[in-house]
Design a binder for these strands. Structure first.
Lengths: 349, 349
DNA sequence: TCTTCGCACTCGCTTGCCCGGAGTGCTAAA
DNA sequence: TTTAGCACTCCGGGCAAGCGAGTGCGAAGA
């Protein structure tokens, strides 16, 4: 029937929403009396009690121990996020402030990514992290091979976001500076504007050989491009870990340790958001959905930022499961939007 | 007389040393009885008591509360570090392990700096951080101005450690690719091998004008060099924050917050080691010597690493005042040595 | 049939209290 | 000057009592 949400009748849904809302606000297990007193439910605490017992049986609520109030379970949060909460929008002044603060960063990729992570961490009052644009999704802009000696040089590759990566190379045959310039020009002519991932080894080899170079130079070019592709791979800017200490759920120091460890292993951090690349929209992972017992009482909000149509990176907020989901989604989206805009400032045209 | 150390007679000095040593080992305030039982002092606990009272009067020891044992004060640790402790050397196998682990990093400046910070953090069981080489102390290797259009280009500057920085420039007058190559060559011929800080604006302008360029190009070149000089300025790799959680002194969460905040503000972290650049040797800062009430019960061990004769960066360990100073100094020195060696691998010759 | 009331019960948290242990300072004797 | 003895202090752990918030359930009411 129309009145059902996720298998819950209207009243149950409303009570669940209220419990989650209240628990997010206070951090205390919420009981039936407190709920009826604070919110006008139109029924008595006893009724609420019955409903809560049902919700617990359905797996939406949990009881830390008998004679304590109820606390949302992963499923409870999930239902809340998917169906019950009302989405938030940022106010115009908030948007403006985000934009203003983002302007403080110079027009360099690293800086705007770090700035957005700092900003988001502070606004959200939680740990925020932002992945740098996957270099695979960046495009190739310029290559320059610099002559150092008869048999050595430096290859410099500039991507569309102005990220330069350089690599030294050694050759088996002599070359002249002119040779290198010729090859640079050929590479630029062929690949300019292409996505880096489309600069595959075969085409690189073809161009290099066409210019009359041997396998040693093919290897050098390949290494240079590989370096550019993978360079910033799991580059992540994180910020705001100290806010986690304010959360009562971190009075237990062991949980903190897991988080700090994860922070330092960028790999793990990256894995957390990796599958968000598959879906272009915001995603929320709750508790065990994060796939790790250590992180079981945390949640993760992830929002992509774009360059043009392509999602090139992710902004994430990691915090206690008991987080204001609607608000954080709004903040992350707002920051993502501004970050996307600023991305055009660093673009090398 | 000969038997005095820092104004303490021999026995007082020995007792102080033992108290510090024992406190570092156990973390418990140490009392006179425990001390006489565990160490063969040749005197009774009552005598030790008297001496300890003197040491407390002299400011070397403190009492958390009446009827507790004594704990070293800043001054007590200071005397211990300066005059009492016996320096440690790393064993040959430990050196080897450090060297082996450092080999895991690819020959890229960032990687070896990060690797050394991770390594040191793990070995020392504390927060370790390593500053990247001050780019001022790096030398200039190559400049390449790349032609993009009649009035715009990219300047790429490579330093001795293979760090490339790039900047876009716009001009008021048309140039040809050949013009830019000519200027690149002139810059390379003039400045190759010089320290970056010696590539001052005046000489840059002189060379640029000599090649027949106007003020717009002078500005572009200046910006490019300034970018290279300041680029990695306060770049710091930190690692091992989670170890701090093991220390009993961090049961209080507020202290952790200060540390996490400092970790994220690289500026503060950099200030901590900044004055260590003045002295070329290892330095130890204890408690209030760090100049901040927040950090009052921490200590910092800082050891420079070198490129050739020049100290170019610092390795630091930040941990509880109650840290095994001799051991950590040895570890930091060992890591610094290996880092210095590996620096030659990334040098662009 | 659903809701509400009343009531007994549960359980964690806080408070107060006691006690043991470790350490001190002081005094007097060696 | 050192040592032994002793009274005193204070922290911390353990334990019991009381409180408060909440539950579940049976019976009464709509």
């Amino acid at each position: 029937m129309e009145n059902e949400v996720d298998g819950l009748d209207k009243r149950k849904a409303y009570i669940l929403a209220t419990v989650v809302y209240e628990y997010i606000a206070t951090g205390e297990p919420v009981g039936s009396q407190a709920l009826t007193q604070k919110y006008n439910l139109g029924v008595s605490s006893a009724t609420v009690r019955n409903e809560m017992a049902d919700l617990e049986a359905g797996g939406y609520l949990e009881q830390p121990h008998t004679s304590a109030g109820r606390v949302p379970s992963d499923a409870g949060y999930r239902t809340y996020v998917d169906a019950l909460m009302s989405p938030e929008e940022l106010g115009a002044d908030e948007r403006r402030r985000i934009r203003d603060e983002m302007r403080d960063a110079r027009a360099q990729l690293d800086e705007i990514v770090e700035q957005s992570s700092r900003l988001l961490g502070r606004l959200a009052g939680n740990l925020a992290f932002v992945t740098k644009p996957q270099s695979e999704t960046q495009s190739f802009r310029y290559a320059q091979l610099i002559w150092i000696g008869e048999r050595s040089g430096i290859a410099i590759i500039v991507t569309s976001f102005g990220v330069a990566s350089q690599s030294l190379f050694e050759l088996r045959n002599d070359v002249t500076p002119d040779d290198l310039t010729r090859l640079s020009n050929a590479l630029n002519a062929t690949f300019a504007g292409r996505l880096l991932r489309d600069c595959d080894d075969r085409s690189l080899a073809a161009v290099t050989k066409q210019c009359g170079f041997g396998d040693d130079m093919v290897g050098a070019v390949r290494t240079a491009f590989t370096g550019a592709r993978t360079q910033e791979q799991p580059g992540i800017a994180a910020s705001g870990a100290q806010h986690l200490l304010d959360q009562p759920e971190f009075r237990d120091v062991r949980k903190l340790r897991s988080i700090l460890r994860i922070l330092e292993e960028q790999r793990t951090l990256y894995d957390l958001v990796a599958d968000a690349f598959d879906s272009p929209a915001a995603s929320v992972k709750i508790g065990h959905e994060l796939g790790s017992e250590e992180l079981a009482d945390l949640s993760l909000v992830t929002v992509p930022y774009r360059f043009g149509e392509r999602a090139v990176g992710m902004l994430s907020i990691l915090g206690p499961r008991r987080m204001p989901y609607a608000r954080l989604l709004a903040l992350a989206s707002g920051t993502a939007e501004t970050l996307s805009e600023r991305l055009h400032d660093v673009e090398v045209r």
